[in-house]
């Protein structure tokens, strides 16, 4: 039996249910299990929930749902579920590490004393866990970065990264949808759009899902990007693996 989470107030209309203070898959599982339970039960007065690495933020309407009633319900649900009932989806995202996409591949290679090809191979060999979204629309924070690639973030931001950049920094990985200046390193780009506001399913990767990157060359990137732009989803579900 895991310890009860801490319940913190973020004003009078949001609670933070904190399961820990670290980036840890087991903590994330508890966050997502509570999120699943709340989404299934949908108590009246809950506006929305936001899973993060280590806590679940619950936005609620205090004129409909009393704080202590909500806190009590949360503790009951958190005590009952620490594992998710449903298996997370495993995604394969094509990723081009070649020029012009892998802008910072060489910089990372120099930092860790490897070749750019080795950096790409290490990244493509890993399975990442999507912990949460944040920072910008569809910006997916991922864990599971191989130790060898755990470079610190840049001391100062680099110019805006391209759309759908595949990045690393501070021991984490990310897929970044909207171009912005960043302290991360751009290893490549995916033609897959994790965020497409005009698409019926604007987001298809959920927190808790896993991602593997499949290396593609620049010509394939261009072809897949066209198909993606035409409305196709070029990311694939990984089948038959548990």
């Amino acid at each position: 039996m895991s310890a009860a989470p801490r319940i913190l107030d973020a004003g009078e209309a949001a609670l933070v249910v904190e399961f820990g203070t670290r980036v840890d898959p087991a903590i994330s599982d508890r966050v997502l299990a509570l999120d699943d339970a709340l989404l299934a039960e949908r108590p009246e007065g809950i506006a929305e929930t936001v899973p993060t690495y280590r806590s679940l933020m619950i936005h609620y309407d205090p004129l409909i749902l009393d704080r202590d009633t909500l806190a009590g319900r949360v503790l009951a649900l958190a005590g009952g579920a620490s594992q998710r009932d449903t298996a997370p989806t495993r995604w394969i995202l094509p990723c081009c590490y070649e020029a012009p996409h892998g802008e910072d591949l060489a910089a990372v290679a120099t930092q860790i004393g490897r070749t750019p090809e080795q950096v790409a191979a290490l990244h493509a060999g890993a399975t990442f866990r999507v912990y949460m979204y944040g920072f910008a629309p569809g910006f997916a924070y991922c864990g599971g970065l191989p130790e060898a690639l755990a470079v610190p973030r840049r001391p100062s931001p680099r110019p805006p990264h391209p759309t759908n950049a595949v990045m690393i920094g501070g021991g984490l990985a990310a897929v970044a949808t909207v171009p912005m200046p960043t302290g991360w390193y751009v290893l490549g780009a995916t033609p897959s759009r994790l965020y497409a506001p005009e698409r019926e399913e604007s987001f298809f990767v959920s927190p808790g899902d896993s991602i593997r990157f499949e290396p593609i060359d620049a010509a394939t990137f261009a072809r897949l990007a066209e198909r993606e732009a035409a409305g196709e989803r070029v990311a694939r579900r990984e089948e038959g693996v548990s």
Binding site: A10, G11, A13, V16, E18, T21, V50, T52, M57, H59
Partner: peptide
């Protein structure tokens, strides 16, 4: 530094 978590308006 904390491990990122949710932010309410007014935080």
């Amino acid at each position: 530094d904390i491990v990122s978590d949710g932010v309410a308006m007014g935080a």
